[in-house]
Design a protein around this nucleic acid. Structure first.
Lengths: 377, 377
DNA sequence: GTGCCCTGCTGAATCGGATCAGCAAGGGAA
DNA sequence: TTCCCTTGCTGATCCGATTCAGCAGGGCAC
């Protein structure tokens, strides 16, 4: 039924030359290897006529490169809106003629090691180890067999391994600056983490966002008017935390540590009869699809998943191509988190062209085109 | 730095036997090939001591099987909540010691063909072609080189190729039956598609859900009290469609064709001063994470993404292991869409243990454990 | 004429494991 | 003693590319 695949030997035979000559001709090394133009043309024609496609497995065995990159995540691959990480990686890999082997550890270190070895055994050129939320990762020794890049994670020790992470601290700064620019000063409150260190355990994002926020406020000689930390950042916690906050102070602006918290905060504010943004501005982090669905739409600093994934592949490929990390400085690549201006902050000019346009424009400067929002189910 | 990998030849040498003997010993074919237990033990020990790991590339070249499956989707891999498709496929593949090569076509048929050949060239054992929404797919001839399964799609012609799809029609029946069981009869309205055929173009889900709904209502001698079709199924369209509906009739129950439409419908109902579920019941399809976040939480028939992905791999593996599709009947595998009972339908006992429990229970019968909802960002 | 270089190719090894065919040694039957 | 069968292993080939080393034959210089 399925006719056997054509091999290089058959092409060579058809062209009446040796396999070696055929190989050089097709590899574009004809001049270098002194294959005459006539022979080269004959080989190319024979290959085309026979529908020859080189066997990548065989090539891998000989060359040691499989044109394949491994992507191992803890939970990110299947997480609601962070699949864009993979999307970016996929696109960037394809651009360089690589495919992606993908797997998930579900947080199991044993499984993580097994998957790494399974991929290395299959000859991947490099590995990307991705984490759902920014954290420190213990790098197993087996990872040293091939180039590797940590995505959304740092090495626990001081291993010489590259990291690609969102610039959470800068995002915190942007959020604070945005509120200041829109005229807020007193009455700025935090939902999700507090200066007393309350927040989700082990979440670097929490710490760094807070750092950024406080540094800007501090420079402007402003104190937060209130803050409620949450162990988990879901809508229910946002609702509860905002209720508790409202019992004590009347905020003028809420910085929610992610969009799901903000979603809960919206409900608490509505319950209290407060209007967004007229009574209270709300700004948050992540740019969950949710953020553009709720009303008023949520101004938020986006986690640039697409760019993160793409950058990880880029950094990895650069390593593969022999550009080693120049210095310790270059070991960490921080990706800017872009502000999405919408309706939830008082006095900010909302991009009137709407979200689609905002994202479309984003694409021009390297961001992800909007897709998840335009598909039909 | 990275010490060279240990090869079978080295293991054989260390054990003082031929490479052939070592190969048979490690392959578990010692008895069959009359390798003595002592030699077998010696080889195994040598392999363990040396940290031997077989080179999968080499094995692939010889055996023709790479223990790898290709997963090509149009947009599903990176779509918000349908990454669970991949999750199911990943889990099922790992269970059978396979890894997944993943790629996206972004709907480009040219790219689709390129990716298929790229994967086939890399020796994948089989391919899964997944679609974001259930539709017909033109199967390119190159796909015939290896076993393949369509996920969420049908072949355009009558190719002998397996399909795995959600049972949309039955889901429509379940939705209708659920409303009837909770006492609704007159005043049932549709948002998203209408009996006049209005709905998103090319969406089989739309047609089949409608079919199921109408068949049950028809059997109960009930007509829909109103229906508004939408070309796109986003919150904005749900809002708009529901407004138009409310201008004409006062519904007792709304069947929304997906959760995002329902989200928009909630807003329209709230604007009209109608309470869910006391004034109007709402039921819908998909079980978007959104459905459990909004208040009142949404009763919906879930798209079983995890199960779909897992089933696709299962069907593919069965084919690989030589269980060919027995009959045309077996070419299509329909996966049940489970009802998630929540608060939005009047008079239905809501599972008081909440969503986590509902999903946890689901896992016991093979559904996906809840994860996206419990991660921290 | 002979040594040397240049052109234009080919032979054979290699990557690492799977597997078929075969071979030596030993035992039992005729 | 001869023949055959079983046991327990090994040699050699194969998978399909890449690539190094080498080899004819022609031209040119001295």
């Amino acid at each position: 039924m399925a006719k056997k695949r054509v091999t290089l030997a058959q092409v060579a035979h058809a062209a009446g030359v040796s396999q070696t000559a055929a190989s050089y001709a097709l590899a574009g090394r004809a001049a270098e290897m002194r294959i005459s133009p006539e022979v080269e043309a004959r080989v190319r024609r024979a290959a085309r006529d026979a529908g020859y496609r080189p066997n990548a497995v065989s090539r891998s065995l000989r060359t040691g490169s499989s044109q394949t990159v491994g992507f191992i995540s803890d939970t990110v691959a299947t997480t609601a809106f962070a699949g864009h990480l993979i999307w970016g990686a996929l696109d960037q890999a394809r651009e360089r003629d690589h495919l992606l082997l993908i797997a998930e550890t579900e947080g199991d270190p044993q499984l993580e090691r097994e998957l790494m070895t399974a991929m290395l055994d299959r000859g991947v050129d490099g590995l990307i180890i991705a984490s759902m939320y920014t954290r420190a990762i213990a790098v197993p020794p087996v990872l040293m067999e091939a180039p590797a890049v940590l995505l959304n994670a740092f090495p626990v020790g001081d291993e010489m391994i590259c990291s690609v992470v969102p610039d959470e601290r800068e995002a915190g700064c942007v959020v604070a600056r945005t509120l200041l620019a829109s005229g807020h000063a007193d009455g700025i409150c935090l939902i999700g983490a507090s200066p007393r260190g309350e927040g989700p355990q082990g979440s670097l994002a929490s710490v760094q966002r807070l750092e950024g926020i406080l540094s800007v406020l501090h420079a402007a000689r402003i104190d937060v008017a209130g803050a409620v930390g949450c162990a988990d950042w879901q809508p229910a916690q946002g609702l509860e935390a905002t209720r508790r906050l409202l019992a004590e102070v009347t905020p003028s602006a809420l910085i929610c540590f992610n969009d799901r918290l903000a979603f809960g905060a919206y409900q608490a504010l509505a319950d209290a009869g407060l209007e967004v943004p007229d009574d209270v501005s709300v700004i948050s982090f992540d740019d969950d699809p949710l953020a553009s669905w709720i009303r008023p739409s949520l101004t938020t600093v986006a986690l640039p998943h697409y760019e993160l994934g793409a950058a990880a592949v880029q950094v990895l490929m650069d390593q593969l191509e022999g550009r080693p990390q120049e210095s310790a400085e270059r070991l960490v690549r921080r990706i800017t988190m872009p502000l999405r201006v919408r309706e939830s902050v008082r006095g900010l000019a909302h991009d009137s062209a709407g979200d689609a346009a905002a994202r479309g424009a984003g694409k021009l400067v390297g961001a992800a085109p909007a897709r998840a929002h335009t598909t039909v189910q």
